[in-house]
C-alpha cells in the first residue's frame, strides 16, 4: 500500500515539476548508455580513456562557447574526435602515463583559456558556464535537451548491443578474434566513438569531471558481482540507472545536495557494497584450505 502511495507521489511530483521529469527522462538514457559503454571500458582496461574524454569534453564545450557555437556542438565534436583518435593510435602507440599526464594537463589548461575568452568577451556572459560543464546541471535541462539526450543515449545503447558480441570476442581474446576475421581494430574505433557520444551526453548530466564515476562505478560493481559478460552488461546498465534515479530522488528530497554529487555518491556506494560483499565471499573461499594466496607486494 505504501509502495503504491509513494509511487503515485513520485508520479504526481514528476507531473508537477517538468524539470524533474526532464531530468529523469534524460538521466535514464544517459545512465543506461554510460553503464553499457562503461562495462566494456572496464573490461578492456580503458577506464582512463574515459577520463581523458571527460577532460576533452570540457575543452570542447569551452571552445564552442568561446567561438559562439552551441555548447553541445563542441562537446560532440571533441569527444567523438578524441575517441576516434585514441582508437586509431590504439595499442600500437601505447604511450606512458607521463605523456598522458602532460597532454591532459595541457588540454585542461586550454579549456580554461577558452572559458576565460568566453566570459570576458561577452560582458553579459554566463559566468557559471565553466562550473556547469565541469559538474553538470541535470535539473537545468529543457524539454528539448532532454529529448535529444534520450534519443542519443538510446542510440548509443542500441549501437552497443549491435556490436556487443564481436566486441566481447575481440576484448577477451584479440588474436583469436582477429584470426577468425573479426575486424578488431575497426571495432575498437567504433567503440571509442560511441564512448565519446556517451561522454558528451553524460557531461550535460553530471559534468565532465564526474562522468568518470558513472562510467566506472556501476561497471566495476557489475564486474565484481558476476563473471558472465551479458549478465554483467545488463547489471551494469541497471546499476547506473539505479544510481541516477536514487541520486535524483535524493537531491529532490534534500535540495542542498547538488544532483551530480548525489548520483556519483550513490554510484560509489553501490560499488563499495559490491566490493565488500564479494571481498567477504572471497575471504570465505580463501579460508577453505589450499587456496591461501599470499603475494607480498
Amino acid at each position: 500500500m505504501t509502495a503504491v502511495q509513494s509511487l503515485s507521489g513520485i508520479v504526481s511530483s514528476l507531473a508537477a515539476h517538468p524539470f524533474l521529469a526532464n531530468a529523469v527522462f534524460a538521466g535514464t538514457a544517459v545512465a543506461l548508455a554510460a553503464g553499457v559503454t562503461g562495462y566494456f571500458l572496464v573490461l578492456r582496461g580503458q577506464v582512463f580513456t574515459g577520463d581523458a574524454l571527460g577532460h576533452v569534453a570540457f575543452t570542447g564545450a569551452a571552445a564552442a562557447l568561446a567561438i559562439g557555437l552551441d555548447l553541445r556542438v563542441g562537446l560532440f565534436v571533441a569527444t567523438i574526435g578524441a575517441g576516434v583518435l585514441i582508437g586509431l593510435l590504439g595499442s600500437k602507440g601505447r604511450s606512458d602515463d607521463v605523456v598522458i599526464g602532460n597532454v591532459l594537463a595541457w588540454v585542461l589548461g586550454l579549456g580554461v583559456f577558452f572559458l576565460t575568452l568566453y566570459i570576458t568577451s561577452l560582458s553579459a556572459g554566463n559566468g557559471t558556464a565553466g562550473v556547469t560543464v565541469l559538474f553538470g546541471s541535470i535539473f537545468g535541462l529543457s524539454q528539448g535537451q532532454a529529448w535529444t539526450a534520450a534519443a542519443v543515449g538510446g542510440g548509443v545503447v542500441i549501437a552497443m548491443l549491435l556490436i556487443a558480441r564481436p566486441l566481447l570476442f575481440a576484448t577477451v581474446d584479440e588474436t583469436v578474434a582477429a584470426s577468425l576475421g573479426v575486424p578488431v581494430r575497426m571495432l575498437g574505433v567504433v567503440f571509442l566513438a560511441l564512448v565519446g557520444v556517451a561522454t558528451a551526453e553524460a557531461t550535460q548530466a553530471v559534468g565532465a569531471l564526474l562522468l568518470l564515476g558513472l562510467l566506472a562505478a556501476p561497471a566495476g560493481a557489475a564486474q565484481r558481482l558476476t563473471a558472465r559478460p551479458y549478465v554483467g552488461l545488463a547489471l551494469s546498465g541497471a546499476l547506473a540507472v539505479f544510481a541516477m534515479w536514487a541520486g535524483l530522488a535524493l537531491s529532490y528530497a534534500v535540495p542542498v545536495l547538488p544532483p551530480s554529487f548525489s548520483i556519483i555518491a550513490v554510484a560509489a556506494a553501490v560499488y563499495a557494497v559490491a566490493f565488500v560483499v564479494t571481498a567477504a565471499r572471497r575471504t570465505e573461499a580463501a579460508a577453505s584450505p589450499g587456496r591461501a594466496r599470499s603475494e607480498g607486494e
Partner: peptide, 15 residues
C-alpha cells in the same frame, strides 16, 4: 578492477 576503483574514488572526491 583497480582502475575502476581509482576512477570511482577520483569522481567521488571531485563530487
Amino acid at each position: 578492477d583497480e582502475s575502476a576503483v581509482t576512477g570511482t574514488v577520483q569522481a567521488l572526491a571531485l563530487a
